[in-house]
Simulated scan of single mutants.
Amino acid sequence: MRIGINTLFLVPGDVGGTEIYLRRNLLAMVADNPQDVFVLFTTLDNQGLFRDELKAFVNVEYVVLPFRAAIRPVRIICEQLLLPWYVWKSKVDVLWSPGYTAPALCSCPQAVTVHDLQYKSHPDDLSFLERITLDALVRTSCHQCEAVIAVSEFSKKEILRYGCAAEKKVHAVLEGVEPDFARPVTEDEAVQLPVAGNPYILCVAHTYPHKQVHLLIDAFSRLAEKIPHHLLLVGRPRRGEAQVEESLAACPARDRVHRLASLEYTELRSLYQQADVFVLPSEYEGFGLPILEALLAGVPVVTTDKASLPEVGGDCAVYVQQSCPEGFAQAIVDVLGKTSNERAEMIDRGMIWAQEFTWKKSAARTLHILRDTAGTLCTFQG
């Protein structure tokens, strides 16, 4: 088969979990299926990333569209008007769009991955124009594509709840986690941390309003006098940054709160493994990959019981039922107060659970759906 991959949404380092989702799935697909040809439709922003990451494989072709995806309106126009021509010219059997949206018109069968419908539940994450544009594109994509892939059962329910697609065409395919998170960091790989050797609480999240990073800072403010820990926040400023800044300004231990931008994979692995507890205070996640990364790295996890997070964390995380500073503070105290045996048992259980989520499984299931999708048109034409 010739499998087309629409990577136009991917601006390296800017789209968070959807970038990891595409890169890890694609790597597993290409490596495990040398008989298939993967045709990547890339942009000026991301072509170098894919050429470097997949340079060892001869079953990959590249078609570069001459624009930069960082300019979103240009990306939308090119995806709808320019991409279909390149797809037709490349004679692919199926086109997979892993980033929410797909061309409305296409010469081959299509599948699209819709990671979540966060813009419906948490509209404050986007401007009004961004919301209505995204909703129109997602709904059109779900309608036009023969298959819709959701990254969790929760996301599948959201797609059905908002009437974006018929149930028969929506497939839940769980994400994986990189197994290297379990590999102990060597001395050479260890990151020099701003916490200066002190124990710390870790959070990995951009400051979108629904991530509720400000509530974690408020919780830390209540704990600061009782624990020796620092708070390490990894993520870029987003539309919830004003609330974060307010919480930081009111924090009595502001000098013990440290912020880092997005890091390289090996650096992030080091941060996880050296943390005493990982906290994801988010109210809405289509999947919640950081939960698995932390569990596999051997870190106790505190998160909410919202959206897909219980599905991802299973019975291996501590869940806060009410999203408030007091709730997070109590959960953190409970985890830090566990005996060494209790902590070791919690970590072992979490690592075993996380090992069940692999990109190999995710890629195999996704490719099976793509083969079925390609077959729908072949059968019709035959």
Rank of each mutant, 00 (worst) to 15 (best):
L160Q: 00
Y200V: 12
L233T: 01
E245W: 07
R239G: 11
D188T: 12
E246G: 08
V204L: 05
I217N: 04
P199H: 12
A182R: 06
H210F: 07
P237A: 03
E187P: 03
H210A: 01
A165V: 05
C203I: 00
Y162M: 07
E167Y: 00
S247L: 10
V177T: 15
E178K: 09
A249S: 11
L174N: 14
Y200K: 09
R236E: 14
A182C: 05
L233S: 06
A172M: 08
V244H: 00
Q212G: 01
V191C: 09
R183L: 13
E187C: 08
P194M: 11
Q212A: 13
P209C: 11
G163V: 00
G163S: 05
R161K: 14
L248F: 11
Q212D: 13
H171P: 03
P194R: 09
L231Q: 09
L248Y: 09
L232W: 07
K169D: 03
V191M: 14
L160S: 03
V234R: 05
P209H: 11
K169I: 09
G197P: 12
A165I: 02
L160V: 05
L248C: 12
A190M: 12
F181Y: 14
E175R: 14
Q212E: 13
E187L: 10
R161A: 15
K169H: 01
E175I: 12
L193H: 08
P179C: 04
G240Y: 00
V213E: 01
H210I: 10
Y208D: 09
K211A: 08
Q212C: 13
L193K: 11
E189A: 13
K211E: 06
H206M: 02
Q212F: 08
N198L: 08
V204A: 05
E245F: 10
V177F: 06
P194Q: 13
V213N: 00
L216E: 04
L248M: 15
L233A: 02
V185Y: 04
A166R: 12
V195S: 02
E178T: 13
V244W: 03
Y208S: 12
N198Y: 01
H206S: 15
A242K: 14
A205Q: 02
L233C: 00
S221E: 02
E158P: 02
C164T: 02
E175A: 10
A242D: 12
L202W: 03
E241V: 04
S247M: 06
L216D: 09
H229C: 10
K211C: 05
L223W: 01
V213A: 04
H229W: 06
K211P: 01
I227D: 10
T186K: 07
L174W: 12
R161L: 15
I159Y: 02
P228R: 01
E167T: 07
A224F: 12
V244L: 14
K211H: 05
H206Y: 06
E167G: 09
L215R: 13
Y200N: 06
A219I: 13
E175Y: 03
E225N: 11
V185G: 00
A219M: 11
R238T: 03
D188H: 10
D218K: 12
L233P: 06
L202G: 01
P237T: 10
I159K: 02
V213I: 14
V185S: 08
R236Y: 04
L231T: 02
A205D: 05
T207A: 01
A182I: 05
A249E: 14
G240S: 08
Y200I: 14
H230F: 08
A224L: 09
